[in-house]
């Protein structure tokens, strides 16, 4: 018997005996998920996030001593091999963390 045909036959057998999966609350669960997700559309959610971010930035700008903080930034920066190694390690660790972290759907 041809092996390739055997695989085809197995799938044909599976196809002909494929069970009908009863709904068992699948549709109603989905409907309730849709109901809750519709409370705020993606556009509305994005708009709320943007407005909140802008407001937060404005408040932060008013209350924090931005000028003083900017003066703390060094005018010149010397990179030693140890600093370079440290920064590289930090970036590598961050890249690994981003690659492995699970995003929220």
């Amino acid at each position: 018997m041809n092996n390739v045909t055997d695989i085809d036959n197995l799938f044909a057998q599976a196809r002909s005996t494929e069970p009908y999966l009863n709904d068992q609350g699948f549709t109603s669960k989905l409907s309730s998920q849709i109901q809750s997700s519709k409370q705020l559309s993606l556009g509305q959610e994005s708009a709320v996030t943007i407005v909140a971010t802008v407001l937060g930035c404005v408040v932060a700008y008013q209350f924090f001593p931005v000028g003083d903080l900017l003066q703390l930034v060094p005018a010149q920066l010397s990179i030693t091999p140890v600093k370079l190694l440290g920064v590289s390690s930090l970036l590598a660790a961050l890249a690994y963390w981003f690659a492995e972290s699970k995003p929220v759907y």
Binding site: E18, P19, Y20, L21, N22, D23, F26, T27, K29, L30, Q33, I34, S37, Y105
Partner: peptide
């Protein structure tokens, strides 16, 4: 739902819970 859930069970090593979760997400 039946066809999709069956297909996803085939895709997930017959993990019924995972297949149903993926089916829910697909329909969403």
């Amino acid at each position: 739902q039946s066809d999709l859930r069956y297909s996803l069970r085939q895709m997930t090593g017959w993990d019924e819970a995972l297949a149903d979760d993926l089916a829910q997400e697909t329909f969403m």
